[in-house]
Amino acid sequence: MKKHLLDLTITENRFIGENHILMKLTSNEKLPGVVPGQFVEVRIDHTPTVFLRRPISINFVDYKTNELWLLIQLVGDGTNHLSTLKAGDVVNIIMPLGNGFSKPTNARDKVLLVGGGVGIAPLLMLGAELKRDGFQIDYLLGARTASGLLLLDEFRKYGDVYVTTEDGSEGETGYVTNHSVLRKQRYARIYTCGPTPMMKSVASFAIKEGVDCEVSLENKMACGLGACLCCVTETSVGHKCVCSDGPVFNIKNLKW
C-alpha cells in the first residue's frame, strides 16, 4: 500500500476521561484507504524533549466525513503535547503503515476482539469492517477501572461488548481472560491488542482452545517504514520488523 506524507488538519480534539484524547483529522484530499490494524507516525514539533515521530494506531477512518480518528493515552511529553492541539491546527502524519489484521476465512465465523487499555484503539475499525462483511463479533474490553473504558457506545455499534475492570467498578472483576463469556462462547478467531502481559495470556488461552489468534505489538520505533530495523520482534523465522512485517502477527509465528 502506498504510504503518504500528509499535513492533516484537526477537526476535533477532545478529552475522553482524564487521560485520553480522541483526535479527529481531515484533509482537503480524500484520505488514503487503510486496513484496520494499520498505524500512523505523528510528527511532534515544538516540544523541548520529543525528537522522533510517535506511532499511533488508526482508531477509525470515517470515509463519509473524510476523517481519521486517533485515540491517544497521555503518557509522556509527546502525547501530552498532542492533547494541547486545537481544531484548525495542522499535524504532519505518515500513513498508512504496517500490515493490519487479516480477515477470517469462513463467512459464518464468530470472532472475538479483546482489547486492554488504549490497545482497544485499532479494534474499533476492525469491528466495523468485520460487521460490514457479515461476521458476527463480540468485544471483550478490559481496563483497570471504569473510567479507563473508552468509546463503549462506539464499540456497541458493531457487536456485543463485554467488559472487565480490575477493581470491579464496571463489568466483571479481574482480567479479560477471567471473563465468563470465554467459557460460554466458542470463537473461530481472536484478535487482541493491549498491554503485552494481557496479550500473552489471551494468546495462551487461544493456544489452549486451539483458536486462531492475531496480536498487535507495540515496539519502540524510529522510522516506522522498515528501514532502520530498530523495532524487531523474535519470530519463528528470526527478527521481523513490527512496523513493516507487523504490527499484527499470528501467534503461531511468534515465540510466545
Binding site: 520529543v50 525528537f51 530498530c230 524487531v232 520482534t233 527478527h239
Partner: peptide, 30 residues
C-alpha cells in the same frame, strides 16, 4: 544498509532509545 559476509541476526530488542535531540541504537548490523 551495512552488509557483512554472512547473515547476521543483529542484537536483541530493545534496539533504540530516544535521547535529548537524538537517539541511541544497537541494531547490530542485522
Amino acid at each position: 544498509k551495512g552488509t557483512t559476509l554472512n547473515h547476521r541476526e543483529g542484537n536483541p530488542y530493545p534496539r533504540m532509545a530516544e535521547t535529548p535531540s537524538g537517539m541511541l541504537n544497537c541494531v547490530g548490523l542485522q
